[in-house]
């Protein structure tokens, strides 16, 4: 029996990266536990509950992969509410609290040996990064087939992880495409919403390929619809949901969708599972 007292472990912010221009204000935080064991065990797709001491707590998807060289916990945070605003004020050396990891994870077994497609919208790239960095890790790369990415952002200013993109682009058997909402001077990549670009820009095979998508709810819906139109099996389309949460353990009742608790049975669901669930997300 696992006892969870809802109290976090202390972690130190070791690095803060300003990802985007001030318009969206996304920062990436690198964290290490201060109690000796810097890392925790986790799986790609899981999330943690982060406490800003004296302010509150909120869930964040892990944006790092559990590979051997992973020394720090990484999350990317968009300034939105009380906790995220307080977090954005914090700096290197400040302390926060961490509970977790919680939730299920991306289906690694199902993905193993197959081609992988990642379609992201904005900060939806953050939770996918836990799998992207896993799949593209030199020690694990041979376990997966071809990798394609389509990353959507509002504007070039809003791009995430520009310091990682070169590495991803240069990984063997990998193509990375970028798109922004509106044309912009000097932009040499795609323009438009991701669901309109899937057919043209990605090679969408119906066999032996797993599709991962994450972004705003409306984008997830549009992308999954387009993939289904292209003949992709809903079981092969994987996404991860966001809900308000207090406990992360399937108790507090906030993240219910039908009998499922997104914090415990999710946050990762296939589109097939989403179709079986009441439409309440």
């Amino acid at each position: 029996m696992k006892v969870d007292n809802y109290l976090p472990r202390e972690a130190e912010i070791t690095k803060v990266v300003q990802e985007t221009g001030i318009n969206l204000n996304i920062k990436t935080f690198h964290l290490r536990f201060t109690d000796g064991e810097a890392m925790m065990e986790f799986q790609p797709g899981q999330f943690l509950m982060l406490t800003v001491y004296g302010v509150g707590e909120a869930p964040f998807g892990l944006a790092c992969a559990p590979t051997t060289d992973c020394q720090e916990i990484i999350i990317s945070v968009k300034e939105t509410g009380k906790v995220t605003s307080a977090l954005h004020e914090l700096q290197e050396g400040d302390s926060v609290g961490i509970r977790g990891p919680y939730g299920n994870s991306f289906p690694l077994e199902k993905t193993s040996g197959k081609d992988v497609v990642f379609i992201s919208g904005g900060i939806g790239l953050a939770p996918l990064r836990s799998l992207i960095d896993y799949v593209l890790h030199p020690d694990l790369r041979q376990d997966f087939g071809r990798v394609q990415m389509l990353q959507a952002f509002r504007s070039p200013e809003d791009m995430l992880y520009d310091y990682e993109q070169q590495r991803w682009e240069n990984s063997p058997g990998t193509t990375v495409k970028y798109t922004i909402d509106r044309p912009c001077e000097g932009w040499e990549h795609c323009v438009g919403f991701p669901h309109d670009l899937i057919d043209e820009e990605l090679d969408c095979q119906t066999e032996d390929t797993v599709y991962y998508t994450c972004g705003p709810p409306i984008m997830i819906k549009a992308v999954t619809n387009e993939l289904v139109n292209l003949g992709i099996d809903p079981e092969d389309i994987i996404t991860t949901l966001e809900m308000r949460m207090s406990c992360g353990l399937g108790k507090c009742g906030k993240c219910n969708i039908g009998h499922r608790y997104v914090c415990k049975d999710g946050p990762v669901y296939s589109y097939k599972e989403l179709l079986e669930m009441p439409d309440e997300f």
Binding site: Y6, S246, C247
Partner: peptide, 19 residues
């Protein structure tokens, strides 16, 4: 049994919440 957490300075508290 649904609940929420609330904070009083450094104290973490739990209170009943409602759907």
């Amino acid at each position: 049994f649904c609940f929420k957490f609330f904070w009083e300075e450094i104290e973490k508290n739990r209170a009943w919440d409602s759907c």
